[in-house]
Write a protein that binds this DNA or RNA. Structure first.
Lengths: 374, 374
DNA sequence: TACGAGCCTGACAACGTTGTCCAGGCTCTA
DNA sequence: TAGAGCCTGGACAACGTTGTCAGGCTCGTA
């Protein structure tokens, strides 16, 4: 009430933040140095207060709050009244400390704002909810250090389990945590140097089928634009591309492949280069949704029709002209499968780590069926 | 090690789950009745263990872990060694209990999978991260009860603050929490029956401008398809529509307005009805991204060109033919503004609740500039 | 040599909850 | 009427951490 000066000062509670991003993490305004030990949750009432007010013992309040048997209706009424009057709400931090389970799981993904991860995290959330757990999530921004910070911060909070979409490629730092009982499932990309559950799409097969599809429609000069090759999915999709080309006996020119960050500028440049020159590609296979969107823009300005198949479905793809043919993966199924596996592991049912691969689906809409414009 | 039978049993830790959804919440497999008190975090080492192994006192370990001064380099080395050897990681649950702050904030929104909320939650997360806090989030699925469950579960975890996108329209249940010190900011829609910070877009003005735009291009029979009127944003946008029509002296026929759930089937039917009949609309204003997408699909099958302006921007809107004219709101800015305000409140800087309205932006791309096809 | 200052270190209580265990009062039956 | 058994309620310790405080050590100085 009176301490309106209470300042938010979780300086030392805060999760560690790598500075390498160059991005200031602690705004000046929160950099207070004095510690304010008195900053309690606004002095919320505790069970003790409720007990005192109701004139009962501490444990009785606990029983009422948790719906345990063995309390007279009359006593229960008194306790409920006191709870009401004081605005008591059980402190789950204390509860968790005592019980040893937090009923929460962590989800670390690349970017919550990416339309691919929305359905995925929603699916994880639904499964968590069905198991009575809350979801804590964070974005790694494709930065291995940030992934590790987040994961370890979550472990420190003692989440019961973790669903991780790896940004880094070495997860040995998780070994002690897993050994200590944190159920962990990796999704979308495999974990590095560690034996754990993995749920991925069939990136290799999907890409191969997509490229085969282009070949079947008469294309031979097919470009590939993908994400950085250190990202496993990108590498796998490239491998699918190469296999399809090889199987068809088509030698691949270096200039047909472009891997790197998926920022629009680079992708645009890469696409333009493939489309110009003495032997331009007649079709492009794009390695993920972001790349596809940029390439669609490039093709829209291009005079000659160019065939396109993209990895990942994109909204409104069917309404473009031509519709965009894609290799779709089921983001929600990835999340659901991973989360379900995680809870089975928490049940103790599940013991040996496994790799689960979900199939992809080729959706033809027109852009992949354009003939080569030679 | 030996207790491979440990089963996930947060039965009573779980957040309350309303049953009205008809959707089974507790899978058979987790319905164990015996309690397993021994289920500790896989018996993780504690500071006590570290202290014992390093041959120092408990508090010294605490000092080392927290980087507090007053420890000999030699002692520190011994402690670090013990930490390493045991795989110790501080238990933040205990820490939180002791310190009174959790360094985490809750975000309750409608649906994580909705492309509108992705950027919003990412923005909230970034701000939280800059303040050293983690983000716990949940989807209310537009269900007032579920919103309340989630919010109260978060309060029980003693999140330091809450960002809430209201599903319900009565938030008095939050009063004791706010009084107890949980900083709360509502986003996207106002809170009901409670005095709190609110960050919204200018739904009314945006819709009015969008409809004005259609009127300026010669339309008079303009349809409006929106979300359920009990959702504040939907009501405001409808108000904007009505004002624009009124200002232009155009009487609105009841059959031009359709409000209700945004599931594709209903929206499709509504659009088709407006487009048929003796006096079909020549333009449609859509009340949110989901509606817009569905209506685009309907219009694509329609022979006569129909003008369209939609509330909310959608990806690839510029690549359709014609490009889709929209009233865009800045989801990231909504999230950022709300989160920043929340942390200012936690700093104690901020005292009186305020309503902040962010402007919208009309983006013309073609569909809104079509002339009436009479 | 003695003594205070200053530095390290650790014992202890507290945070709010739950599990264990026991006491007292009641009912029921022989 | 006594004893057995059940029901209700409460005292207490423990969960793992941090703040407080006091004790012991070293060092420099009188």
């Amino acid at each position: 009430m009176l301490d309106a000066t209470s300042s938010y000062n979780p300086m030392d509670l805060r999760i560690p933040v790598a500075d390498r991003t160059g991005h200031r993490t602690v705004p000046e305004t929160t950099r207070r140095t004095e510690s304010l030990p008195g900053t309690r949750y606004g002095n919320r009432p505790t069970m003790k207060d409720v007990a005192a007010r109701a004139g009962v013992g501490l444990k009785t309040v606990s029983r009422v709050v948790n719906g345990e048997p063995g309390v007279t209706p009359e006593t229960e009424r008194r306790v409920q009244e006191a709870i009401e009057a004081l605005g008591f709400r059980r402190n789950d931090s204390a509860r968790v400390l005592r019980k040893g389970r937090t009923a929460s799981i962590g989800l670390v993904l690349e970017d919550l704002a990416d339309p691919f991860y929305g359905p995925l995290s929603r699916a994880v959330e639904e499964v968590a909810r069905a198991h009575g757990a809350l979801l804590i999530n964070g974005s790694s921004a494709e930065d291995a250090d940030r992934e590790q910070e987040l994961v370890l911060a979550l472990c420190a909070r003692r989440v019961d389990g973790l669903v991780v979409i790896p940004a880094g490629d070495d997860h040995r730092y998780l070994e002690p945590e897993i050994k200590a009982g944190v159920a962990t499932v990796f999704v979308d990309r495999p974990a590095g140097h560690i034996d754990a559950d993995i749920v991925v799409s069939d990136n290799y097969g999907g890409a191969r089928d997509g490229v085969k599809h282009l070949i079947a429609h008469g294309h031979r000069r097919i470009g590939f634009i993908g994400d950085m090759p250190r990202i496993h999915t990108a590498a796998e999709r490239l491998r699918g591309y190469r296999t399809a080309m090889e199987d068809a006996g088509i030698p691949v020119a270096d200039s047909w492949m472009s891997l790197g960050v998926t920022d629009p500028e680079r992708v645009r440049r890469a696409a333009r280069e493939m489309l110009s020159g003495p032997e331009p590609v007649t079709a492009i296979f794009t390695g993920n949704n972001r790349v596809t969107v940029t390439v669609i823009r490039v093709l829209a300005e291009h005079t000659r029709p160019v065939a396109l198949v993209g990895f990942d479905d994109i909204e409104l793809a069917d309404l473009l002209n031509p519709g965009v043919t894609v290799v779709a993966q089921d983001a929600a199924a990835l999340g659901r499968t991973a989360a379900e596996r995680l809870f089975r592991r928490l049940d103790g049912t599940l013991l040996t780590p496994e790799r689960i691969e979900l199939p992809t689906r080729l959706i033809t809409r027109g852009s992949g069926e354009l003939p080569p414009a030679d």
